[in-house]
Amino acid sequence: MSDLALVPRRRRVVTVALAAALVLSLTLSTYLIVAASSWRGAASGWERLAEAHATEAAQATEDLAAARTELAATREQLDTAQARITALADEKAQLGDSNEVQRQLTDYQARVSAAAANVATSLASCVDAQNQLIGYLGERERYDAASLERFAGEVRGFCAEASSANRRLQQELAR
């Protein structure tokens, strides 16, 4: 190659190099602008997302506090209800005891009353029979001696029954 041809070629190479550098710079700048814009958008998006979640977290914290307050109140009500249930069960048991004691007392009084009535009836029979026997003995000559003896035996039976009834009454009273 002649020396004369080197000068235009040198200029052409330099021109191409400068053009390439220019294209490369423009491409790089464009890319950087696009990347910066995308990161700016992403940062904004993340900020909005963080704000939304922060709002949700604040609301959740508030809800949790409210739920805890409600739970504490419910627990307090439950404790009160349990204490009331226990107290009512105790009252019912005491009433049951009292009723049972009253029933036993009523049964006892009924048994004593029945025994006393039995004593009174037996004693009345004994007294009536003895009075009758006294009358018979006052007119002894009008009655057969064997009949009088038999009647006297019946009178002793009535009075023995009265004694038995009295013993049963005493036993009931002693219980």
Binding site: V14, A17, A20, L24, W39, G41, L49
Partner: peptide
């Protein structure tokens, strides 16, 4: 000039590796 052009091309290619990527879309 040739060497500079070659160097510039190589530098350009290498710069692609260190450039920040475009941001991913925000969920």
């Amino acid at each position: 000039a040739r060497a500079g052009l070659l160097l510039l091309t190589c530098a350009g290619l290498a710069a692609c590796g260190v450039l920040p990527p475009v941001a991913d879309p925000v969920p």
